[in-house]
Amino acid sequence: MKTKTAASQMAMTWGRELKKTSRSKPLGSRIADLCIWATLILLTSLCVLPMLNMVSISFSDRVAAQANEVGLLPINFNVSAYQVLLGDAQFWRSFMISVERVILGTALNMLLTILMAYPLSKNKQQFGARNVYMNLLIIAMLFSGGMIPTFLVVKSLGLIDTIWSLVLPGAVPIFNVILLMNFFKSIPSSLEEAAIMDGASKLKVLFKVYLPISLPALATISLFSIVGHWNDYFSGLLYINKAANYPLQTYIQQLNIDVTKITDVSQLKAVAAISNQTLNAAKIVVSTIPVLLIYPFLQKYITSGLVIGSVKE
């Protein structure tokens, strides 16, 4: 009881202080605050409401979905679309291929990005060929080789129908390199000089000094890599010929229900209860969940990583 009373008193005190603060503000400032809050609520609604509608459609009856009657709540709640999607063995195989791609691709992206960003963060006196490499990176970022030449290179290396065809063509994300390079530039050079005076090598300075204080930038670029690998479906269409080797996004983009191959009665009933709208909505929901689970762990680093890494001094 004492705890509840103390908590209620603190809440009342905080409320009074908030009222005093709001009253002490000029009328124009309070109106500006209201406009800002209204804008933020509107933008949040524009982001959240379509997702709620998509989730509701995935759990709704096929008739209601086809008639566009579903709003923010499901109509005739059912999980038939998820039964069809999750009941397919190929779904889980493609899911594991995408997980493997995310782990392998993100690890490779991070390694190459770090090893490129560190020397490029030095000035021309410290790294004489810096401008040459920077010009090459900028040209490569603005002008790609094209889809057909890239496919021919991947094919000539014998990477078709392998996980490496999904990982190696984008192994060096140039935007991430520039972002991390600018973040490294913001780190005081005195830290590196002190470590070198203590006998640390350049590689040790990178991994013992730079990386521990670069968590915001590292979290930001790792999230970019994770989302990029997870959401990419076009690479699977280009480089994977066997449907059994499709990553998840390519699989759900190509998913077609073949009734002649379904022998389970429960699966037939589930197929009869869904439509293209409910199945597509279930695809979107299932493919979004892993990213939503990862994002909260990295969110606190995103803003600072983007702001610091995007400013060039």
Rank of each mutant, 00 (worst) to 15 (best):
L159T: 07
Q254W: 00
G15C: 11
D88W: 00
I221Q: 02
I187L: 11
H229I: 03
W37Y: 14
V84P: 01
Y251H: 13
L237H: 04
C35Y: 05
L142V: 15
I36G: 00
L120D: 12
L108W: 01
R130S: 15
A272F: 07
Q254K: 09
S29E: 14
P50A: 01
I196S: 08
I103W: 01
L42W: 00
N135M: 15
F143A: 10
V102R: 02
L238P: 05
R23S: 10
V205D: 09
G158P: 13
G199E: 01
R23W: 09
D61R: 00
P247D: 03
V209S: 08
V84N: 04
V259R: 11
D264Q: 13
S121D: 15
L34M: 02
A217Y: 09
T106K: 07
K2Y: 15
V311T: 11
S225R: 07
A32F: 14
L52G: 06
N68C: 02
A65M: 02
R23F: 11
P74H: 00
S98C: 09
I114T: 05
F59V: 06
T113G: 12
V70Y: 05
T106F: 07
S98P: 14
D61G: 15
T220Q: 04
Q9T: 10
Q277D: 13
A89S: 13
A272W: 01
L137P: 12
I163R: 14
L298G: 07
L142D: 04
P188H: 07
V265P: 12
F127R: 04
T13W: 10
I31F: 02
I262C: 14
V153F: 08
S8H: 08
G28T: 14
P149T: 11
L115N: 03
T3K: 11
L248S: 09
L120N: 11
L72D: 01
L142K: 05
A81D: 09
A32R: 07
A81T: 06
Q267G: 13
Q90V: 07
D258I: 13
V48P: 02
A270H: 09
T278L: 05
A171H: 08
L112A: 06
P296G: 03
V63E: 04
Q9R: 08
A194C: 13
W92E: 02
T288E: 00
